[in-house]
């Protein structure tokens, strides 16, 4: 598969012709829609939410956010950021309901703290790995993006970023930048080891008990397959929260999860929290 990310910058690659070709291809529409739905499932929103769409392009995901029916927690109100004026033009033509910002996510996320309930990003953040000029490095751009994203989400909020990493090193670089910004992070892979593999970075912002969300990524990915967990803040939190009163049944999923937490407390690195521990899965980080 060709990777325009490796040779071009996004605003040049997504010109008029390419943006139109992209948006009108029914194959692309289908793939982007199914990834958006998957991301929504991972966000697990309980009601109509305010959502940031990072690298929203022509609004293929946004249309789904606007069209989410009430019995599935929608419809959502969204704001999209994109660096390609031509993509945004097509979004206008398609009369999307979300607001659009012509902006470079590598420069940050210009919203005040706690703005969004959630963020979604489909097939965009790998673009951050090519520096767009000699003045900035991919690390610098990734860190500005994730720091900004972290601040713009409310406590207990989540972000799901599907992206196409060039290789394991890039996957790691992106994930580590997110963790460094303060996120709890997990990577989920659908169809691993096939050419259709889809990588989702699931990010949580530490919440309060009041939200019914401890900010622990293991809650988010609970019951999902092929999920790895990395959370820079968990250890500190566990020390203070004194949890562990529940005695789950031996052999149950909850029990396995608990085991992992205990092992982690001992300082062993335990990354997996997939449904079946013995299952073959890909471990990243």
């Amino acid at each position: 598969m060709s990777r325009p990310e490796d040779t071009l910058v996004a605003d040049i690659h997504y010109n008029v012709t390419e943006s139109r070709k992209y948006t009108t291809s029914s194959r692309i529409q289908n793939v982007q829609a199914s990834m958006t739905l998957r991301a929504l499932e991972l966000l697990d929103l309980s009601g109509p939410s305010f959502i940031l769409d990072v690298g929203c392009g022509s609004g293929l995901s946004g249309e789904i956010l606007s069209a989410t029916p009430p019995d599935e927690g929608g419809p959502h109100v969204w704001v999209g950021m994109d660096i390609s004026a031509d993509m945004l033009d097509i979004a206008l033509e398609r009369d999307v309901e979300g607001d659009l910002l012509y902006s470079d996510i590598g420069q940050g996320v210009p919203f005040r703290a706690g703005t969004f309930d959630a963020a979604i990003s489909i097939s965009a953040i790998q673009w951050l790995c090519n520096a767009e000029s000699t003045e900035t490095s991919p690390q610098g751009r990734l860190s500005r993006f994730f720091n900004g994203l972290y601040a713009s989400l409310r406590r207990g909020g989540r972000a799901v970023c599907q992206f196409y990493p060039k290789n394991d090193q890039q996957k790691k670089m992106i994930t580590q930048a997110a963790v460094k910004a303060g996120f709890g992070a997990g990577l989920l892979e659908d169809d691993p080891e096939t050419k259709n593999v889809k990588v989702y970075l699931v990010l949580t912002v530490g919440g309060t008990a009041q939200d019914g969300n401890s900010g622990d990524i293991t809650n988010v990915v609970n019951g999902m397959e092929g999920v790895d967990v990395l959370d820079s803040r968990r250890r500190a939190r566990e020390k203070s929260s004194g949890r562990g009163d529940i005695k789950p049944q031996k052999g149950s999923k909850a029990w396995i999860m608990k085991k992992k937490e205990q092992m982690e407390k001992k300082g062993k690195v335990v990354k997996a929290s997939s449904k079946y521990t013995g299952r073959k899965r890909r471990i990243q980080f």
Binding site: L92, L100, Y102, R144
Partner: peptide, 14 residues
């Protein structure tokens, strides 16, 4: 313009 705000910054302001 057309409802879209331009938030691209010149690099010295980033």
């Amino acid at each position: 313009k057309e409802g879209i705000a331009n938030f691209l910054l010149p690099s010295h302001l980033v």
